[in-house]
Design a binder for these strands. Structure first.
Lengths: 327, 327
DNA sequence: CAACAAAGCTAAACCGGTTTAGCTTTGTTG
DNA sequence: CAACAAAGCTAAACCGGTTTAGCTTTGTTG
C-alpha cells in the first residue's frame, strides 16, 4: 500500500480509500481511482486482513467449538456452518473439545484472544462459567445442539424430548414392550431429554423398569457399552428393543451385538438417535431419528450474524427432527 | 495494556516485556514484574492476538483446505490436524472446496490475506497455478492426500498404486476373475494411481477388459454410479467383484447394488478404498483399504512447522495403508 | 570520590491498514 | 473579481501490541 502510494506520489490514505471501495465518500477522482486499481493489480497487491482487523475491530472470523469434528454429525454441522459463513465472507476457526471442560475453556480463551466476531459452540458439561464470560464480554454467541438452561443466550436445538417420546411410542405401537435405553451419563439437557422422553412414555404405558436404563460413562464408553449389551442380552424378561441415544453409542453397541450374537432385527430391534450415512449400505433395518443438520448450521450463522449486526434479541430455536427407517 | 501501564505509572513497553515473558532480556525487576502480573490478572487482561500478529508477523494460525469436511475421511483428517496444531499453539482455519477450482482459488486467497503461517491443502484438479503462487509467496505448504506432479513442494500421500495392486492381486488369489473398477474421472494422481494399480495387475494376469472400467463424473456421480452398477449387473461375462476407488463412490454404489438386488457377497464381492466407521455395524463383508489418517494429519503439521521454522528441505512422504476385512 | 559498569526502565518506531478533519485548488455565482 | 462552495486530496491519529537503542539511576571499584 505504501509502495503504491509512493509510486503514484499520493498518500496511503487515498490508496486505502480507493481499494476499500470508499472512494465516493472520500471523493477521489475517477482518474486517480483507476490508476490506483491498475497499479494494485500490477503489483499483485492483496490487503493484509490482520492489519485491517486491528484497525476496524472486526476480524470477519467466527469460532466454532464442537465436540469432535471427526464425528459425522459434527462434521456435517461444521460443513454447513462453514459454507454459510463463507457466503457472508466470514472464515471459520474450528476447535474440538472431546467433551473435555479443560479443552473447552482453552478453546474459548483462544478464540476470544483471536478476536473472533462471534462464537458458535456445542456446550460441554460444566462450561457455564466460561460461557457467561463470553456473554459478559459482549461477544455474539450461539449455542448449538445443546444449551445451558441457566444461561440467557441464543441456542438452536432439536426437539429431543418430543421426538424421543414419539420414537418410543412408535415402537410400542409396533408391539415392542421391553425397550431399553443406552445413553451417556452426561448432564446435558439434550441427552437427558432423550432419556426423559423414553422414561415418561414407558411410565405412562406401564412398561417402565429401571433395569432398562443403561447410563454410560463417556470416558470408558467402549467397555461400559459392552457391559450394557451383555446385561441386556441376559435380561430374564427378554429385552426386545434398544434405544441408542446417540450415534457413537449406537455404533459401538451394534458392534457388541454382533459379537454376542444378538441378531437385528430377529432378536432385537434398534433405534438410533442420528442418521448415519452408511445406513444405505447395511442390510440391517434401523429406526433412526434424523436431525436437521443443514438447517442447524445455517440458522446458527444467521442468528450469529444478526447479533454481530447489533440485534440483541435472544432467540431460542427448536427444530423438528424426523423418525425414519433404513432399508 | 495501556491501562495497566497508566495505573502503575510505567510504560507500555515494560508491561509488554513482562507479560510476554521477555522480562529477563529487558531486565525488569522482580518486584515490578509481580505487580504487573497481579494487575493483569485483576483487570482480566488478555492479549489481543491480532495486534500481536500484526506486530510480529506471525499469526499462529494455519489454513486447511479440504474437499469436504463432512466426509468422514477428511473429517478425521482435519480432526488430527487440529489436535496436533493445538499442541503447538496453532489454530486452524478450515475451508471446503467441494472439488471446485473456483472455491479452491478463493480459499487460498482468503487464507493468504489472513496471513496464515502455513497452508495444508488437498489439491483440486487444475489448481496448479494457484499453488505455485503460494510457493512464490514463500508461504509454507504441505499437500496432503494428493499432489501436483509438476510442483516441487512437500506432500504426504499414501501408497495408492502399490496398495491397489495388492488389493487386486489378493482378490485374484481368492479366485475372483472379472473385477470391475469404479473411479472418478478426476485427473488427480491419487485417483489415477488407484485405477492404474488395477489396470496393471489385470493386464499382467490377462484379465484386463476396458469394459470393466467405469469412470464417474464427480458432478453427476449419483446417476453415473447407478448406470455403472446397472451395466455391471448386465455384463454378459458375470462380473464377480467391484473395486471402488473412494468411499463416496462405494457408499453410493452399494446403495444401488441393493436397489438392483445384487447381493454381497453372494453375487458380488466389494472392495472399498477407505475405512468406514459403520463397517462395524453392517453384516456385509467388505474388503477395505485403511489409510493411516492419524499419521497423515500429524505428519502434515510436523512438516509444516518444520518449514515455518525455516527448514526449506522438501519432503515427500508416502505412508503405507493396510488391506483389511470387515465382519 | 571519580570513573565506570550494571540494572532498570522509557521513548519511539514499527506492523499495515482505516478514518476524518481540514487544507488546497478549482469552479461557480452575482 | 470577490466570495463562497465543491472537489480532491493529505496529514495525522488510531488500532494494540513488540522491540531496541539509549537514558537515568544505582552500585562498585581503586
Amino acid at each position: 500500500m505504501q509502495d503504491i502510494a509512493d509510486r503514484l506520489g499520493i498518500s496511503r490514505g487515498t490508496v486505502s480509500l480507493v481499494l476499500s471501495g470508499k472512494a465516493k465518500s472520500g471523493r477521489i477522482s475517477e482518474e486517480l481511482q483507476s490508476k490506483v486499481k491498475a497499479l494494485a493489480k500490477d503489483l499483485n497487491y492483496f490487503p493484509n486482513e490482520i492489519a485491517r482487523s486491528l484497525s476496524t475491530g472486526v476480524t470477519k472470523s467466527i469460532g466454532v467449538i464442537v465436540t469432535d469434528i471427526s464425528n459425522e454429525f459434527f462434521g456435517k454441522m461444521v460443513f454447513y456452518i462453514q459454507e454459510q459463513a463463507k457466503s457472508y465472507a466470514y472464515s471459520v476457526i474450528v476447535v474440538n473439545t472431546n467433551e473435555c471442560l479443560e479443552d473447552f475453556d482453552e478453546a474459548v480463551t483462544i478464540l476470544m484472544n483471536r478476536q473472533v466476531d462471534g462464537i458458535i459452540l456445542v456446550p460441554v458439561e460444566g462450561g457455564n462459567k466460561t460461557v457467561k464470560n463470553i456473554i459478559n464480554r459482549k461477544i455474539p454467541l450461539v449455542q448449538i445442539d445443546r444449551f445451558y438452561p441457566d444461561i440467557n443466550s441464543n441456542y438452536i436445538v432439536i426437539d429431543n424430548y418430543d421426538v424421543s417420546r414419539k420414537a418410543v411410542e412408535l415402537l410400542i405401537e409396533e408391539g415392542y414392550k421391553r425397550i431399553a435405553v443406552i445413553c451417556y451419563n452426561i448432564g446435558l439437557a439434550s441427552l437427558t431429554e432423550r432419556r426423559q422422553g423414553w422414561i415418561d412414555v414407558m411410565k405412562e404405558r406401564d412398561l417402565f423398569d429401571v433395569e432398562l436404563i443403561k447410563n454410560i460413562d463417556y470416558d470408558n464408553q467402549d467397555s461400559e457399552i459392552e457391559k450394557a449389551i451383555i446385561d441386556l442380552k441376559n435380561d430374564t424378561d427378554k429385552v426386545d428393543a434398544i434405544f441408542f441415544c446417540s450415534r457413537k453409542v449406537f455404533l459401538t453397541g451394534v458392534k457388541y451385538m454382533f459379537k454376542y450374537d444378538i441378531k437385528i432385527p430377529e432378536n432385537m430391534h434398534v433405534i438410533c438417535f442420528d442418521k448415519i450415512d452408511a445406513f444405505t449400505f447395511a442390510n440391517t433395518p434401523v429406526t433412526y431419528i434424523e436431525q436437521p443438520i443443514q438447517q442447524m448450521g445455517q440458522k446458527a450463522i444467521d442468528l450469529l450474524l444478526d447479533q454481530i449486526r447489533g440485534n440483541d434479541q435472544i432467540n431460542h430455536l427448536v427444530l423438528n427432527s424426523e423418525i425414519k427407517f433404513s432399508v
